[in-house]
């Protein structure tokens, strides 16, 4: 979305254009599969990609730690799940970046 939805008295044409631009940026008009919206702002792009990567690792560590606590197998589930979580994080990154490439 371009700056200022505050200028709401704009005519309908410019709203359509901004909607069009926003949708393009969100990767919606390419009938995207699992596409994630990305924004032009590099800071929030960096923050978003970092969050994508870390989120998957957090889930993997939580599952590994939980299973270990439950089954008294202390390091093993964690060791198994962390690489899977890292792979899932890369998968998230790829899905998030797919729309910024084009």
């Amino acid at each position: 979305m371009s700056k200022g939805r505050g200028t709401l008295h704009n005519n309908h044409g410019s709203f359509d254009q901004r909607l069009e631009a926003a949708r393009r940026r969100a990767g919606l008009d390419q009938n995207g599969e699992n596409s994630q919206p990305t924004e032009a702002n590099p800071l929030s792009l960096a923050m978003q990609l970092g969050a994508e990567m870390v989120a998957a690792l957090v889930v993997a560590v939580a599952i590994g730690y939980g299973l270990d606590r439950l089954l008294h197998t202390t390091p093993w589930f964690m060791i198994g799940f962390v690489p899977i979580g890292a792979a899932a994080g890369v998968l998230n990154l790829l899905r998030a970046m797919r729309t910024t490439k084009n």
Binding site: E52, V54, A55, A87, A88
Partner: peptide, 25 residues
């Protein structure tokens, strides 16, 4: 057997990245 856990973890990480993105910004 390798890809399904990856997909599941990727799916389960959605609420985390969704909430962290808004909160962090």
């Amino acid at each position: 057997p390798l890809l399904i856990p990856i997909e599941i973890i990727s799916y389960m990480s959605r609420p985390i990245s969704l909430s962290v993105r808004l909160f962090a910004n």
